[in-house]
Nucleic acid binder design. Structure first.
Lengths: 199, 199
DNA sequence: CATATTTATGACCAATTGGTAATTAATAAT
DNA sequence: ATTATTAATTACCAATTGGTCATAAATATG
């Protein structure tokens, strides 16, 4: 019995899996935004009544924060794995960017970028979460770039963190642009093109 | 007497300037988003009662479309001028990107990118407007890049339209990223860095 | 079986939402 | 001056919003 279950050992047991609900909530906020999502939307997405949602996760805002955190963890896990497939840092960087691009196009964007645009300017908590996630990802990229530079596979005309900043902005741009167009042919190769210009 | 004024020659005259109202509406939608803006917000921003807003511009959605169109026209005018200051296409491209970057950081983003993220997937009319604006800007950049390439100031390893696609995505990324951070030092030079990697 | 505890459900709430309609006010044409 | 026309203002509306609360149901403990 772990700590998370401990306070549930007494009383009526939950009829839902927390992660499954969080996943449904996440998806709803992801493609409708915070203001565009009503509690009714969340109820029909999760199959729960709002009373249950409130009791289990708190109000709409807390629910959003938790689903955003969930998104950040899940999406990073899903994607970071592809940066360890090869021996060469450059190959790893390439497959990481390809993976992100593919996921981004399939999933029609990125919940972090959506939240950055919609909420960050008016929501300190969201802003803070994004700040952390951004810093971590930037370090991740900087490290890969640094090693690729040492291997001589990337130009050393720029510092690794500046190149990483370019990637971060380009990735955000990809996530934003994907939402505007049905045909994504003209943007699917953008990350590759940026990378190839660093040869 | 022009056509626009013709139907106003009879009856009580308007007490507001259409453009001033549209400007206030635009700014409100720009930094609160569509769903995040209520009619009350628009009334206090414009000083008009909602009855007047409806009569003059239609419902909330039409009002948004008109203010988005207004934004597209105004922002393009403001920015495009800086692409004609110098003789060299490369210098013009550089000052254009600098101007966009500056405006983007000052104004905390771009209404088109905001709308792309929030609305395009669920709003055909918005999507269409963005599509047009995107195509025009991409042509504008492609043309500049093409001429800079002919001058030998930009690598010819990539086609102009692919380089332009990179710029478009990076610009969208800039507009999105700007909204997430108070300190913009780490992104202010991204466009320059992209450009310099094309030397 | 009784009790304590937790969850699920549905009724309930005030406030706000986008939107309409009736009334009043201001102008041009007659 | 009267009338037609347009605009400004106000009152009004049904629906939805996020959020709470009382009650019923399900479990573990004693």
């Amino acid at each position: 019995m772990n700590i998370a279950d401990q306070h549930r050992s007494v009383g009526r047991p939950r009829e839902f899996e927390e992660d499954r609900v969080l996943d449904a909530v996440m998806n709803t906020f992801w493609n409708q935004g915070y203001e565009g999502t009503s509690l009714k939307d969340l109820c029909s997405a999760t199959g729960l009544h709002k009373g249950s949602l409130y009791q289990a996760f708190g109000d709409k805002h807390q629910l959003f924060l938790k689903s955003l955190k969930y998104y950040m963890e899940q999406s990073f896990k899903e994607v970071a794995a592809s940066a360890y497939l090869h021996d060469s840092p450059m190959a790893n960087l390439r497959s990481l960017l390809n993976e992100i691009t593919t996921k981004c196009i399939e999933g029609e964007g990125c919940m972090v970028v959506n939240s950055m645009v919609e909420m960050a300017p008016h929501d300190q908590e969201v802003k803070q979460m994004i700040d952390q996630s951004y810093a971590m990802k930037q370090r991740f990229l900087t490290d890969l770039i640094d090693r690729a530079q040492r291997d001589g596979e990337i130009t050393i005309k720029q510092e690794p963190d500046r190149l990483a900043a370019v990637l971060m902005v380009t990735l955000a741009g990809l996530a934003a642009t994907v939402k505007g167009f049905s045909n994504t042919d003209h943007i699917s190769h953008v990350l590759e093109d940026v990378l190839s210009s660093w040869a």
